[in-house]
């Protein structure tokens, strides 16, 4: 029952995210847009390129979907409303997100096309930039909660949310989460106008529908993770807990889209330089400061 409820919440979240994304991209709010888009994609021809790595080509969208759902499976919507409350939840989120890279490399390799392949490998470079900035801020979050259990992490923010307690960690995680979900301005693997869709270029019809759904779920998953780790999860007055989680998650996703639409796509070299020369020292500083706070303010 819990599982069904969480999956329904994830799908509803993906729907809302798709509406938000179309709004950010076209400037028009069409509440029915994703329904039309899905119905249209399902009725169009799907296509297998002539020399595919068939396994990679077919499996990549599904793997991306699975990675997003797995990560979301350990993130709570409300007390008790979580698919699995793992003892190593925060670590598991990381592990699940690692498969995003695998899925994108497979989607790039599978069709045997130059644009897709360049897009896939670009994401590998991107991972080298963002991956530490996912792990290190989560480390500081777990330090404060003294636990990797995601529900305990939410409880640890009963007084002060982590966005206030460790704002530096929040900023770094937020940016890294955008890069992980390859949202603009970190959309190097798809790069419209540059790679003719990149990893998406050879997907069409129902396969593209799965890929787009997976991507929307991934955005929900990273926004939900940001909510749980930094925005106090389900905490909030008046509304039921699940509503707070949902609202905060959508707000995070909307903030990501709004920011993405106003920034030019990063250059791979710049992104790596910023991540390693600036991001990682700041993440270390964040861990140090949180450590001091944990010791000083019991």
């Amino acid at each position: 029952m819990t599982t069904v409820a969480v999956l329904a919440a994830l799908l509803a979240g993906a729907y809302a995210v798709a509406v938000l994304e179309a709004w950010a991209r076209t400037g028009r709010m069409r509440p029915g847009g994703p329904l039309f888009a899905a119905a249209a994609l399902i009725g169009r021809e799907s296509f297998v390129p002539r020399k595919p790595d068939r396994l990679f080509f077919e499996a990549a969208p599904v793997l991306l979907l699975v990675a997003a759902v797995l990560a979301a499976a350990v993130l709570p919507w409300a007390p008790g409303l979580v698919i699995v409350d793992l003892a190593t939840g925060a670590l598991f989120v990381n592990a699940a997100f690692a498969y995003v890279l695998v899925a994108l490399i497979m989607a790039g390799w599978g069709p045997d096309g130059a644009y897709a392949m360049v897009g896939g490998w670009r994401f590998l470079g991107q991972l080298i930039g963002y991956s530490m900035l996912i792990v290190m801020p989560i480390t500081a979050v777990a330090m404060r909660a003294e636990s990797l259990v995601t529900t305990v992490i939410v409880d640890s923010q009963a007084g002060v949310w982590n966005i206030v307690y460790q704002p530096l960690g929040f900023v770094l995680f937020f940016i890294a989460a955008m890069a992980l979900a390859f949202l603009p301005p970190f959309d190097l693997p798809t790069a419209p106008g540059e790679l003719a869709g990149g990893v998406e270029a050879e997907y069409a019809g129902r396969r593209l529908a799965v890929l787009r759904l997976a991507r929307a779920l991934l955005v929900v998953a990273v926004a939900l993770a940001t909510t749980v780790f930094y925005l106090g999860g389900w905490r909030g007055p008046w509304l039921p807990p699940w509503a707070w989680t949902g609202l905060k998650t959508l707000a995070v996703a909307a903030a990501m889209f709004a920011l993405g639409g106003r920034l030019p796509r990063v250059r791979e070299a710049h992104f790596l330089a910023w991540c390693w020369k600036l991001g990682i020292p700041l993440a270390l500083l964040n861990i140090f400061v949180v450590g001091l706070l944990v010791l000083a303010v019991p």
């Binding site: 991209r25 400037g27 603009p184 959309d187 790069a191 106008g193 540059e194 639409g261 106003r262 796509r265």
Partner: peptide
């Protein structure tokens, strides 16, 4: 064209 390829779609439109 230029802004569109840089991902600045609002301005491009």
């Amino acid at each position: 064209v230029f802004l569109g390829r840089l991902g600045l779609e609002v301005h491009a439109r």
